[in-house]
């Protein structure tokens, strides 16, 4: 018994070191769940406030570029307004409608909420962003985040005023994507090397792919609105082992220079989830 105490006394510091090291490592290897823990929420709230203060200063430096981006987007949106479009006269016909409900009326599926990016990283193997918008402002986990030029990532953690976004530059990114030309479903991943290049796998070799082709989100995603830009094909390699290409994709958005983002809310999300859970039960 005495020997045990002597042993503990002698190696007390080493044991303390081991305990702390284990704490740190266990946190590291459970980082997927980390953002929903109490400490994770607390720390993102605290670091979020500080980041917000500093970002207030930083954002002055990029006001001009930001303005230009928004102007370009405004112009694009304005040109889509129905008042700016003409219809050929010959297709117009006066018909007395007997149906009282306008069944051709569209309704909105995706709602875009403006958000300020207050911290960002592109250096690491797992890159996260922080948005100044949280559960009080209607953000929930798993919502999509897009920028003016294209897809940014997915919300993974929400505190009351901040939310953490896993950007596309993350080792665990998996996003279904298609070529804008049409055919070919693929999967976007990141190899952790270049913050401007993503990898698109699983496009079958039957599809003709050229450098410069646009890669967009698929219409089958339940989070991302279909047709959002992800990037442009920058290199085409044949995978020798399978019947698919490995494509390098230059990101549409410059991840090192993101200041504004939109959080996308899918209004049909609950309905889709219900259907999915029903499927899983059966």
């Amino acid at each position: 018994m005495r020997n045990i105490f002597l042993f503990i006394r002698r190696y007390a510091i080493f044991i303390l070191f081991l305990i702390m090291q284990t704490t740190a490592l266990s946190m590291l290897f459970s980082y997927n769940r980390f953002h929903s823990t109490l400490y994770g929420m607390f720390s993102s709230e605290v670091s979020g406030r500080l980041n917000d203060r500093v970002d207030n200063v930083y954002s002055y430096f990029s006001l001009r570029e930001e303005n230009e981006k928004l102007r370009a987007q405004n112009a694009q949106l304005l040109s889509q307004l129905p008042s700016g479009q003409l219809f050929a006269d010959t297709t117009k016909r006066l018909v007395r409608d007997t149906v009282k409900i306008d069944s051709t009326n569209s309704y909105r599926q995706f709602e875009f909420m403006d958000a300020h990016v207050i911290s960002n990283s592109v250096f690491l193997q797992q890159n996260y962003m922080m948005l100044h918008r949280g559960s009080n402002q209607g953000v929930q986990a798993n919502m999509a985040v897009v920028g003016p030029e294209g897809v940014i990532g997915t919300v993974i953690g929400v505190s009351s005023n901040m939310s953490t976004v896993m950007s596309l530059l993350h080792r665990q990114t998996k996003l279904i994507a298609v070529l804008k030309k049409g055919s070919g479903l693929g999967e976007i991943v990141w190899d952790g090397k270049d913050p401007q290049t993503l990898i698109l796998n699983k496009i079958p070799k039957t599809v003709v792919v050229k450098v410069g082709d646009t890669v967009v989100t698929s219409p089958y995603s339940d989070r991302f609105p279909p047709g959002m830009n992800i990037g442009f094909v920058s290199a085409v390699t044949n995978d020798q082992e399978t019947n698919t290409y490995i494509l390098k994709v230059r990101t549409a958005i410059d991840f090192s220079n993101v200041h504004h983002a939109f959080v996308v809310k899918n209004k049909l999300q609950n309905e889709m989830d219900e259907l999915k859970s029903k499927l899983n039960k059966e």
């Binding site: 090291q21 720390s43 605290v46």
Partner: peptide
């Protein structure tokens, strides 16, 4: 550092060593 880099435990482990 981990709070700001959002890598729970990574820098902590290294600084402890």
């Amino acid at each position: 550092v981990d709070m700001f880099y959002k890598t729970p435990g990574l820098h902590t482990a290294a600084v402890l060593l």
